[in-house]
Design a binder for these strands. Structure first.
Lengths: 291, 291
DNA sequence: CATGATATCTGACTTAGGTCAGATATATTC
DNA sequence: GAATATATCTGACCTAAGTCAGATATCATG
């Protein structure tokens, strides 16, 4: 009854029997799924026909027909790409935008009703995030970003919130040595976020100092993404960035309440060292020499 | 970024882009999905053609063609129903069973690899259970069963395990007043389990005494199914059964550590009463008069 | 046993989705 | 500027899936 394989297959069945409904929600407006998907992708800002075809994995002949069909309905217009007249650019007309919005409203309403019927929506959403992250694990990208950007700020906010949950005496950023954003950007350092279909699932900062030393800061992996090896991927990205910046020694501080992080460091070539700062929160210090 | 609707839609996208793979896993053996689904359903024991058609929601013409195609491949045989020669019964041949097993192996392997790649499979499985329960909430059935059967025993095991996690000093069934199975079966009482696609998600027992009084025992809802109103449905079923058995007064005992249960009782017409037994675990006692 | 209901089958037809081989126009490279 | 590559389009063709109107055989009922 609790056989893991049976549980996964039960999940698959539940999902596939609902997916009919998912698909037909795209129908319901008198348009086949294929055409609706193209309209939807254009509405979400994909205008280049070649990119569309690639994204939706469609044959060029089929794509062409779908575009023609949308044009005949008066929902899109196409024109040649200004830099390359072989390529075409598709754009929604006013009617097309209205139709796209109608799909969006339908889709949002469906999502909304799923949540509204549940009396513990936060638990359900967390479960959905976790499943989505696991299903899409091969599509999680690591991007180097400005630590002041929206994704980075979101990750840092979640990171601080988690620290204050996990530290017995809470966590207050103001009391910690908050790294300057410029220290975590080229040419001194770097900041990475892990993105799954637009949702930030983790981050790590590399804070460069003068000379050949740098610190790893703000390593965080969203609860929904734990177990996918994202911490290691983030650390690898930070190390690679450090090497590119000719850094030879990395250091970091952490707290013994963060067991999984500590375990990761010990498993990946870090060695414990003496305290090297007076930040009140960390009680464990590590170093790694890059060769 | 944390907009609930966006999170649900992200989940839908993740799932639909994997469902292609789910579908094509049924292919991969050179047989279209429709036919493969029929083979699969027959393999899982559905032999009556009318039942198959109903289960798979297929048109009778289409069903007939699928059966013919499987017969031509030598995977099934059909014969008239012994009691009604209009109906037909489909059965796998030896070759059909081999083919069915091949699909099963493929499907199990796929599920297995999903789990194997995750380093916290239990968390992922719990999330999948929760999502599956929420998606299939309208298909959760309440069945009256023998409390000694497999489903009931599973629920009771989970129930005891949860009590020992939640009670500060643990829980030992042997010390509790374990109701006799016969007290929770007709004509004295009843036992219900909630089933979602075969997985037990909750249970409740009605323990009849001599006279017009009965007790509610062993109300449990699986963590994956919380928030779906299953506790209430189970209690309603128990009440209805009690009325049928001409019971006029229901009692129950519970523990203040089980907040959500207490809340449910208070909201559904139960009133707190004095202790009515010497079981060491409960510290709260309720009564409800049935009209 | 006549009548209507039911289960399955068959043939004719439709739609959605997709493949593939050129045709056409434009860009890139030598 | 010729040869080649690329992006899109068109026509011909195919499969999967599904709908629908009878045909046929059997069952249930008065």
């Amino acid at each position: 009854m609790l056989d893991p394989i049976a549980r996964v297959r039960r999940f698959n069945r539940a999902v596939t029997s609902e997916v009919g409904a998912l698909d037909t929600s795209f129908l319901g407006r008198g348009r086949p799924l294929g055409v609706a998907r193209v309209l939807n992708a254009i509405g979400h800002g994909r205008s280049d026909v070649a990119e569309l075809r690639d994204y939706l994995a469609l044959d060029s002949g089929l794509m062409s027909r779908f575009l023609r069909s949308l044009e005949e309905e008066g929902l899109i217009t196409t024109k040649p790409h200004p830099d390359d007249a072989r390529r075409r650019i598709a754009k929604l007309t006013a009617a097309g935008r209205r139709e796209f919005e109608a799909y969006e409203t339908l889709s949002n309403g469906q999502a909304q009703s799923m949540i509204a019927r549940h009396s513990q929506p936060e638990a359900l959403l967390a479960a959905m995030d976790m499943v989505a992250a696991a299903l899409g694990r091969d599509r999680i990208s690591l991007d180097e970003v400005d630590p002041r950007g929206a994704e980075a700020r979101y990750c840092l906010g979640e990171y601080y919130a988690e620290l204050s949950r996990r530290f017995a005496r809470g966590f207050d950023v103001a009391l910690s040595r908050d790294p300057d954003a410029l220290d975590m950007m080229a040419p001194r350092g770097a900041f990475f976020v892990a993105l799954s279909d637009g949702l930030p699932l983790g981050c790590v900062g590399l804070k460069g100092h003068a000379g050949a030393t740098a610190e790893i800061k703000r390593l965080w992996v969203a609860p929904a993404a734990r177990g996918l090896g994202l911490g290691r991927r983030l650390m690898d990205a930070a190390e690679t960035a450090a090497r590119k910046l000719s850094i030879t020694t990395l250091r970091l501080d952490t707290n013994s309440a963060l067991g999984e992080a500590q375990q990761l460091y010990r498993r990946t070539g870090w060695t414990e060292i003496e305290r090297f700062n007076d930040d009140p929160y960390p009680d464990l210090f590590f170093e790694k020499r890059l060769s």
